[in-house]
Amino acid sequence: MATQFQRTSTSDRYFAALAVAEGRALHSFFDQHIIEDKRLGYFALDEGDYNVLPAHLAARVVHTIHGAMSDEF
């Protein structure tokens, strides 16, 4: 699930996307990526939404938070 943020400054958009990605990562097996988009600003993207992250999105990843859930004991 991608989440976009429309706020006034670029840094506000980045930190809002970071907060969402960090929150999701705590409860996910998948990595959470922050993607930069010239039109939308920044948005959080769950890697689980894609089998393999498409090249056009992978090229715009600015930060990744690894999923915190593990099924290995």
Rank of each mutant, 00 (worst) to 15 (best):
Met1Phe: 04
Ala2Ile: 13
Thr3Asn: 10
Gln4Met: 08
Gln4Cys: 08
Phe5Thr: 13
Phe5Val: 15
Gln6Glu: 10
Arg7Asn: 13
Ser9Cys: 00
Thr10Ile: 09
Ser11Ile: 05
Ser11Lys: 01
Asp12Trp: 02
Asp12Glu: 15
Arg13Trp: 02
Arg13Ile: 01
Leu18Gln: 00
Leu18Ser: 03
Leu18Thr: 01
Ala19Leu: 11
Ala19Arg: 12
Ala19Gly: 15
Val20His: 05
Ala21Ser: 01
Gly23Pro: 08
Arg24Asp: 03
Arg24Trp: 15
Ala25Ser: 07
Leu26Pro: 08
Phe29Ala: 00
Phe30His: 15
Phe30Thr: 02
Asp31Lys: 06
His33Ala: 05
His33Val: 05
Ile34Arg: 13
Ile34Phe: 14
Ile34Tyr: 14
Ile35Thr: 04
Asp37Trp: 08
Asp37Ser: 07
Arg39Val: 04
Leu40Lys: 15
Tyr42Asp: 07
Ala44Glu: 05
Ala44Thr: 02
Ala44Asn: 05
Gly48Arg: 07
Gly48His: 07
Asp49Gln: 08
Tyr50Gly: 12
Asn51Arg: 09
Pro54Phe: 14
Ala55Glu: 04
His56Thr: 07
His56Ala: 11
Ala58Lys: 03
Ala59Arg: 05
Ala59Thr: 10
Ala59Phe: 01
Val62His: 01
His63Asn: 07
His63Gln: 11
Thr64Val: 09
Ile65Gly: 02
His66Phe: 11
Ala68Val: 15
Met69Pro: 03
Met69Arg: 02
Ser70Met: 01
Phe73Asp: 05
